[in-house]
Nucleic acid binder design. Sequence first.
DNA 1: TGCTTGACGATCA
DNA 2: GTGATCGCCAAGC
Length: 108
Amino acid sequence: MKDTNFFGDVYEVVKLIPKGKVTSYGAIASYLGSKKSARMVGWAMNAAHTLGDVPAHRVVNRAGLLSGKHCFETPTKMQELLELEGIIIIDNQIQNFETVFWNPDTLL
DNA sequence: TGCTTGACGATCA
DNA sequence: GTGATCGCCAAGC
């Protein structure tokens, strides 16, 4: 598990996401250096949510769609968590995505 | 040991 | 403007 340094890096970035904000897989991948594909971020998220120590619900795809909701305990769990953050979600899609979008590069 | 799949993204036709 | 395909890398079977 220590070899999966990439995963640990993804976890760190996801943990840095402010409350009420979300980011995209591609943004994380790009932040890590674009050497990894957005798919790898998805894999990392899959493992991350399993740990339960990473707010994977704050990570969505480029279109602001809750593509990973199926990986949660319940399809509505992800949406519910995001709504608690103050994010509006309709039909599994984030509204005002530009407003709630947080780019890791902004942290720098 | 090797092929397929997989929470995506970007580009080409 | 829309649809389809390729690329990325790792894990599962």
